[in-house]
């Protein structure tokens, strides 16, 4: 079942083309990664898909809904978390959860049960009444994800979710992502960590707004006869640069 489909999706900022005619099909329950250098277009891609940026041209369907005409419906079915974590540092953990629950107009009972659920799963009963700024970064990141997931979205967009956290926390976070995928959620992740790219079901390597490779990490390594995604990435980028010269 197709969860997200784009056709010739393009975003231009003036004369600069950030995303260049991308065709994509991502399936339900898939963990789909965008790997690329800064400015390769991966954030722009994600921001278009979750309605933060209007595409210059091309089509996109999110859970079968048109991003131009049905953006209000799409909003209820997607979750988004950026590297900034988007929590209010001067509110308590509980107040953050209540607020995001309120923004999605969840009823009070549901918010309360969600709050308990999060307290148990993140093991932060004590921290509920603490200000978010005093919570460790790793926990904050997981809390931000929990807040972005309160309304039980089908598709989750994670824009560099693990930048600025240590490798141990990054590992834990990926376990959550796997868990989400097993529950049938489609997960989009952008990253510039090579080892993180290995965890995706399918990976697209982006450069200059185009997808220059799209396959599972295993296949990619096999086709290019390399041991790690890092080596594949370097090989591809070099080849691309030579072609352009």
């Amino acid at each position: 079942m197709i969860s997200v489909k784009t056709t010739q999706l393009t975003k231009k900022f003036g004369s600069f083309t950030a995303v260049d005619a991308v065709d994509l099909e991502v399936y339900k329950g898939e963990i789909f990664g965008f790997l690329g250098a800064n400015g390769a277009g991966k954030s722009t891609m994600i921001r278009m898909l979750c309605g933060l940026l209007m595409p210059s041209s091309g089509e996109a369907l999110i859970d079968g809904l048109d991003i131009y005409k049905e953006s209000e419906l799409i909003k209820k079915r997607i979750g988004y978390m950026s590297q900034k974590f988007s929590l209010y540092n001067d509110l308590t953990v509980a107040e953050n959860i209540e607020f995001y629950g309120g923004v999605y107009s969840l009823d009070k009972k549901l918010i309360r049960s969600k709050k308990e659920e999060i307290a148990v799963s993140l093991n932060l009963k004590e921290e509920m009444k603490r200000l978010t700024r005093d919570v460790p970064v790793g926990l904050k990141q997981r809390l931000a994800l929990a807040c972005a997931m309160l309304h039980d979205p089908k598709i989750i967009f994670l824009d560099e979710p693990t930048s600025g956290v240590d490798p141990k926390v990054r590992k834990d976070f990926w376990n959550i992502i796997y868990d989400l995928s097993e529950h049938g959620k489609t997960v989009f992740v952008t990253t510039h960590f090579m080892e993180e790219a290995e965890y995706c079901h399918r990976l697209s390597i982006m450069q200059d707004g185009r997808i220059i490779a799209l396959d599972s990490p295993e296949n990619m390594k096999a086709i290019h006869n390399e041991k790690t995604i890092q080596d594949v990435f370097i090989k591809l980028i070099k080849r691309q640069n030579n072609d352009e010269i």
């Binding site: 309605g51 209000e72 909003k75 988004y80 978390m81 900034k84 995001y100 923004v103 999605y104 972005a148």
Partner: peptide
């Protein structure tokens, strides 16, 4: 940004 992706 987080509010913009919501139905608010």
């Amino acid at each position: 940004e987080q509010l913009l992706v919501s139905p608010l």
